[in-house]
Each structure stands twice: as C-alpha cells, then as structure tokens.
C-alpha cells in the first residue's frame, strides 16, 4: 500500500518534472544557438494556454487516441514507480505509442498520414532496442522485476555499457531529437509540419504534450536504473545523458527513415548482442 501511495505521488510529480525538463532543454538549446531563450516555465505556459483554447475535433477516434495515449503513458510511469514488471511496462508503453499512430491515421491530412507511417517505422527502430535492454537486465538480475534491479549491489552500467548506448538511441528517438526527429518534432521546421501532431489542436495537443513528458520521464527512469546504487551517481548519469542528447540535437542534421532503420537497428543491435554475449559469458 505504501509503495502504491508513493508511486501515486511520483505520478503526480512526473508532469512537473517533465515540464521543467522540457523548459531547461529549450533554454539550453537556445544558449547553444547563441540565443537568449524562453523562460524555464515556458512549457507550462504553453500547455495551460492550449488547455484554454477552444477544442476543434476532427473525429472522435482522434480524441480517444489522445486520451488512451496519455493514460497508458501515465500507467507505464505508475508501473515504473511501483517497481513492477519491465515487460508489462513495455507493453503498456507500446499501447500508448500505437494509439498515437492510430490518432494520426484516423484523420485525412496527408501530413499526419505520412507522419504516422514514419512514427511506426520509428517504433520499429526503438522497440527492439528497449526489449534487448530489458533482456539484458533480466540476464543480469535473473528476473524482469524492477525491484530486483534495486536489490543489486553493483550499478548495471558496469556490466551493460553498450546496452546503455543502445538505450541512448531509443531515448533520442523518443525525445524526438535530431537526427531522428522525422515523424514529429518540437520545432516544427520540417517537411511534415508536425507530423503526427499536425491535426491535433488546443486541449488535445496539450494532452499529447503531457503524455510526451510522461514518456520522457519514463525513458529517463529506465536510464536511471543503470546506476541505482547512489542518488548522486543516478543524477550525474541522467544529467550527462540529457546533456549529450541536447548536444547531439544541435550538431546533427535530420536524417531520413531508411538511414535511421539501418543505423539504429544495425549499430544498436550489434552493440546489444555483443553486450548480451558478454553478460552470458560472465
């Protein structure tokens, strides 16, 4: 019961953390580009404003998809905080991602359609990586339970450094950052306007934005599993990871999906398999 209440509190705090993270991200990105940048609280202003806009509904599927996306993302975060099963968490997360695609496919806009197709390809790229990472964790701990990870004495990073890099690929895709911002991205200067998000507006866009914050926190939470032994180490790992993501975003051009599939699946899977073999041998 106590874990459940703690998890609920964690769930409530997640959007706050996610929003602040997005704000810091935008500020740092601006500074990297020699700009002054928006206030740190900017993402909250954006979401509040979107909540206050008049809703424009294209069809009910789209709205339903938005709700399911947010709910499943929140549920995944809740499962994470309850230190539940990694595989269950993975499936819940996938449901959210699938419904994001369903929402985009349900509208007639060609931008959303192409965006949905690309989102599917992105899922094809990052989901095997996440699964392999989970397999690695289960090989190291003996089970798919997050609780068992916390029971370990040594940080996972020491035994699975290459899987962490593979998770980094997934993180870049999930964060919608260059070079993988091909289906939707936050700065909208792209060939698909905002891809899967094109046809959403007002409160529903705000929902998707909040869902995205959940996703980011969840993936960062998975990253944090790699150094669970000390809070300082965990925070340092996350800060370094996120800073690297922002840097990569600013020094890369956007790539195309064939390149993404080749690169992510090729390099990512080779790295992971190598790491799995290493785990198996030791």
């Amino acid at each position: 019961m106590l874990t459940f209440i703690a998890a609920l509190i964690g769930l409530a705090l997640t959007p706050v953390v996610g929003g602040l993270l997005a704000g810091v991200d935008r500020r740092v990105t601006a500074r990297l580009q020699s700009r002054f940048g928006p206030p740190i609280l900017q993402p909250f202003y954006d979401v509040l404003k979107l909540l206050g806009k008049a809703p424009m509904v294209v069809n009910s599927w789209q709205v339903m998809s938005a709700y399911i996306y947010v709910l499943s993302s929140a549920l995944a975060v809740l499962l994470f905080f309850m230190q539940g099963d990694l595989l269950l968490l993975f499936f819940v997360m996938t449901i959210g991602a699938v419904f994001q695609v369903v929402g985009a496919l349900s509208v007639p806009s060609p931008y959303a359609q192409v965006g949905a197709q690309r989102e599917l390809l992105q899922m094809l790229a990052y989901e095997p990586l996440i699964i392999v990472v989970f397999v690695g964790i289960s090989m190291a701990t003996g089970s798919f339970k997050i609780a068992d990870v916390y029971a370990m004495e040594k940080p996972l990073l020491l035994s699975m450094p290459f899987l962490f890099i593979a998770l980094g690929y997934a993180l870049t895709i999930k964060l919608r950052k260059s070079p993988f911002d091909i289906s939707a991205c936050h700065h909208a200067h792209q060939e698909l306007v905002r891809g899967v998000l094109t046809e959403y507006s007002g409160p529903h866009l705000a929902l998707l934005e909040i869902g995205h914050w959940f996703d980011v926190v969840l993936i960062l939470g998975l990253c944090s599993l790699f150094w669970h032994t000390s809070i300082v180490g965990m925070v340092a790992l996350l800060v370094v990871t996120y800073a690297a993501e922002i840097l990569i975003d600013n020094i890369c051009a956007r790539m195309t999906w064939p390149w993404m599939l080749k690169n992510v699946l090729g390099v990512g899977l080779v790295l992971s398999v190598f790491n799995l073999l290493w785990l198996y041998v030791s």
Binding site: A30, S34, R35, F36, G37, Q42, A188, H189, L205
Partner: peptide, 22 residues
C-alpha cells in the same frame, strides 16, 4: 526568430500550422 532578436524570449514559436497557432 533568430539569435539577434530571438522572440522565443516571449514564448513565441513559429509553429507553421494554423491549428496550433494563436
């Protein structure tokens, strides 16, 4: 939108999509 003037200071983003714009 660019560094010298940077209207993102005011929270302005060029969204390129009328459905998202104010």
């Amino acid at each position: 939108l660019t560094p010298v003037f940077d209207v993102e200071r005011f929270g302005i983003i060029n969204v390129g999509n009328p459905k998202h714009a104010d």
